[in-house]
């Protein structure tokens, strides 16, 4: 097990390194000069050269790359070109709302979608299956940011305690924090939940047809026990995989939803820094997102071993 984790971490490191390299190259391919953008059109040639040297942009690309990699290896993401603030600090600042919204959205989606998918499968072709399936399809078909707009128009305007704008950290009161992230979280969770619900339903239907479910019925167990003890965990196994894979989609949803709710999150930061050609911030954001993504997937795989006794990572062989 430990060896497996070590191997996976090493693999993750390689992935992150490749992502970092690709991003470095791509960012430099963005047309537009950051110095030009920072100083405006009328700055003197001299001032530009000076700033360029100061920011290390006058050096050859490979030197810039080597320096960036060197600092990255030490966990240093560099400083923003435009403000000079360390990128890591910026990311922690904007990461807080993004992560809060993403996690809460995922939690809401899972806690509704999994039971709904379960019930839908058990009542296949009955009215509640149709209703749940309809809602799930609707959810899959809605862009998260539009759900956000709907929530603002229909909910936030009626209920003052659910603000349509901005973000407050948990330090300033859990209630205030929660009331600011609950609507964005729902907006993020709706499309995600729709997919999970469909997945849970089809997985459950498949499990209900397995031979071991017939065995469970042949033992004279009650229907509830058969479902909850013999089917549920088996049905959950593929759902966990999908839930992990879709984290990337979830994050993409958060970016747009943050903008609807006027929250200074990762999405805003990224879009602004792309516009300003703030290379280190763009690079840093993408790398951090890749790190988060790779680590969550590792976590999902480990959760997998708990759910599925057939999978024992590590040195092979029995138990």
């Amino acid at each position: 097990m430990r060896r497996y984790i070590a191997k996976r971490l090493l693999h993750s490191l390689v992935v992150v390194w490749i992502v970092a390299t690709v991003v470095f190259a791509v960012v430099r391919a963005i047309p537009g000069d950051p110095v030009q953008l920072m100083l405006g059109g009328d700055a003197t040639q001299e001032a530009r050269e000076q700033l360029r040297t100061q920011l290390g942009l006058d050096e050859p690309i490979y030197v810039q790359y080597a320096r960036w990699m060197g600092r990255l290896a030490q966990g240093d993401l560099g400083e923003s070109l435009s403000t000079g603030v360390p990128v890591l600090e910026l990311l922690i600042q904007v990461g807080q709302p993004t992560v809060s919204i993403g996690l809460l959205g995922m939690l809401i989606a899972l806690s509704i979608a999994i039971p709904a998918g379960l019930i839908s499968a058990l009542h296949q072709y009955e009215w509640d299956d149709y209703v749940a399936t309809f809602i799930a399809f609707l959810g899959i078909s809605m862009p998260g940011f539009w759900v956000g707009i709907l929530l603002i128009v229909f909910i936030s305007q009626r209920f003052e305690f659910l603000p349509a704008f901005g973000y407050v950290g948990p330090g300033e009161g859990i209630r205030a924090w929660f009331s600011h992230i609950i609507l964005p979280a729902i907006a993020v969770g709706v499309p995600y939940g729709g997919i999970i619900m469909r997945m849970m339903r089809s997985s459950m239907l498949e499990v209900m047809n397995e031979d071991y479910m017939r065995t469970a019925r042949a033992k004279g167990l009650s229907p509830q026990l058969i479902v909850m003890k013999h089917a549920f965990q088996n049905a959950l196994i593929p759902v966990v995989t999908i839930a992990g894979i879709l984290l990337g989609t979830l994050l993409g949803g958060v970016v747009a939803v943050e903008i609807v709710f006027g929250i200074q999150g990762l999405g805003r930061l990224l879009i602004n820094s792309v516009h300003q050609r703030d290379f280190p911030v763009v690079q840093g954001s993408i790398v951090i997102i890749a790190v988060i993504f790779v680590l969550t997937n590792l976590l999902v795989d480990l959760l997998y071993t708990v759910l599925n006794p057939k999978i024992k990572y590590g040195d092979g062989g029995e138990s």
Binding site: V19, V26, A29, G248, I271, V282, S285, I286, A290, F293
Partner: peptide, 21 residues
Amino acid sequence: IDIFWAFPYLLVAIMLVAIFG
């Protein structure tokens, strides 16, 4: 292909549009 995975696709699309216009 695995590495494609680790890129958040919407953010990548944002970057690509920024590059190509």
